[in-house]
Design a protein around this nucleic acid. Structure first.
Lengths: 118, 118
DNA sequence: TAAATTACGCAGAAATATATGACCGAATGC
DNA sequence: GCATTCGGTCATATATTTCTGCGTAATTTA
């Protein structure tokens, strides 16, 4: 079987197994880690949420992890941080429009996960 | 906003943010880790492959990681290990039928990853 | 006869991810 | 006056993941 122009559905051309970073691995890095999915899920379910509210909702998360995960999600364009300079300070996190295209994919992965467990 | 019967597309009912393990996180555990995607990708592209051939194709992988990743994928039902008692020993790895439903989802995640990068 | 191939296993080290608990300054409620 | 809330930061500790290098037994190749 020659790896010609016929490219894999998820790896770039015949470069796979991935010598260079394949887009799938990149995508998995964005949503990987212990707390990213719970964060995305919570924001999707409840809309804009303040930091401490998020912390209360996501059981077990620490300040360190919540703050760093939010930062990564923000720099990856999944989460939008909005700061209102009231007193006390109000900061709200929500999903970006860009991330909307990700949700149905996660839904399918979730369904697969359910079925795969039997 | 009350979290009633209206359930999230990828988390189980109103249990999310995930107190119990959500199926999406479970799914991500199956394909997570540094080498799982390259392995799945290689097996998908090239079909049944022997251990050392796989090792040559997946650049940078060590015996420890390749062996342990293959074992996990096998116990998760993604990869099938077939041993032929010839001399020298021949062992072939390939994707299971069960895993076929996963491929198009990974494809979409990959597409998302590509677009997300711009 | 020596070297390479086969499919890995193992111990220990290094790198990365995650957790713990204290702390910040301004404001508010008791 | 004291504790709490706001949204985090920081240093350190632990846990998990991944890497390094070596070893195996049978067999084929040079």
């Amino acid at each position: 079987m020659s790896t010609s122009e016929n490219s894999s559905p998820f790896c770039s051309g015949n470069k796979c197994p991935c010598q260079e970073k394949c887009p799938l691995s990149s995508a998995l890095e964005v949503i990987g880690g212990k707390w990213k999915i719970p964060i995305i899920c919570s924001l999707y379910n409840d809309g804009p949420t303040r930091y401490n509210e998020l912390k209360r909702k996501i059981k077990g998360v620490t300040n360190t992890m919540l703050a760093s995960s939010l930062k990564e999600l923000e720099s990856d364009g999944i989460v939008l941080r909005t700061q209102y300079n009231e007193m006390p300070l109000r900061v709200e996190y929500e999903l970006t429009e860009n991330s909307e295209s990700l949700i149905p994919i996660l839904g399918k992965l979730s369904t697969w996960g359910k079925e795969w467990k039997n």
